[in-house]
Design a protein around this nucleic acid. Sequence first.
DNA 1: TTAAACTTTCAAAATATATTGAAAGTTTAA
DNA 2: TTAAACTTTCAATATATTTTGAAAGTTTAA
Lengths: 168, 168
Amino acid sequence: MELAEAKQKFIEAWGKLGSEWGINRTMAQVHALLLISPEALTTEEIMEALSISRGNANMTLRDLIGWGLVEKQHKAGERKEYFYADKDTWNIARQVAKERRKRELDPVLKVLDELSKVDGDVNDPEYKTFNKSVTDINMLAKNVDKTLDTMLKAEENWFWGSLFKIFK
Amino acid sequence: MELAEAKQKFIEAWGKLGSEWGINRTMAQVHALLLISPEALTTEEIMEALSISRGNANMTLRDLIGWGLVEKQHKAGERKEYFYADKDTWNIARQVAKERRKRELDPVLKVLDELSKVDGDVNDPEYKTFNKSVTDINMLAKNVDKTLDTMLKAEENWFWGSLFKIFK
DNA sequence: TTAAACTTTCAAAATATATTGAAAGTTTAA
DNA sequence: TTAAACTTTCAATATATTTTGAAAGTTTAA
């Protein structure tokens, strides 16, 4: 396979994976493009490479910066802004985990905590089932939360090393 | 908070979480409804409770069955089909992990394996960057895959217990 | 200042996804 | 058989999300 073709495939695959996991396809593609670019790229270059509009490129880049996955670079003597992606996979994974936890897991945990406090008639099957499900899910979510917390603080080697010590 | 209100909130929260993670909102809501129902429900009851059409209810239920989260029940002397959700949170988590791995992670792993075999000029920065990113992501994805595999085979207590032994 | 170079915004358009509901299909009991 | 009870299908519709592109905004150099 040619490098050019391989690059396309990578961008496509990353875009598809992103969209299946609730991340805008274009955002994932721009990220993929930057991941395989040795040098920082301009908005123009990104528009060109992915055939997207200026507005789309601009918004997507701002989002990626908001997710902590991409940063702006300035080159001496140039007006243009350049964009560069952190290439460290472990940082990427942590960054994504961190953002999604903040945006999605935390709010749900808050609701679950509230809901598990609701009380009612212990002899009412409706109440009993509701309460059990909510409580169980709350516990699971808290475990996930705790694990993410550890992962966010951890070094890559330590993290996977520890996992494999048990899971091997 | 009243039980009725709490139920609504739970269904909403579950639906929102689902849609943020690439799962159809209605599917997540139907699942939530069944999770807090002590008894199996009919299509009619689900349509009524969530104000959705028959077609939608039917398709959604079929999807949930396909995900292994819901099963049909038959009651003696009745024509109607009843639907019941497994209430074991750990089973739910495993089931979802299993399906998403099969549907989404596995195909990406296949592509990444291919792409990491592409070769090129080691002095070409374009190639070097491409290759490094693809290889790194491939390794990460394989680690995730391995961990999921362990999780799928594991008992809940063993799994979290082992995690906490390290992560505490 | 000014104007060229560049970035951002956002209403409108395009696209993708989800939902409806009526018709077609299936099963069962008599 | 038949017809009532129930389930499934799918084209049309509705909704939600993404993208465009031109106009407005900003920055910089001269």
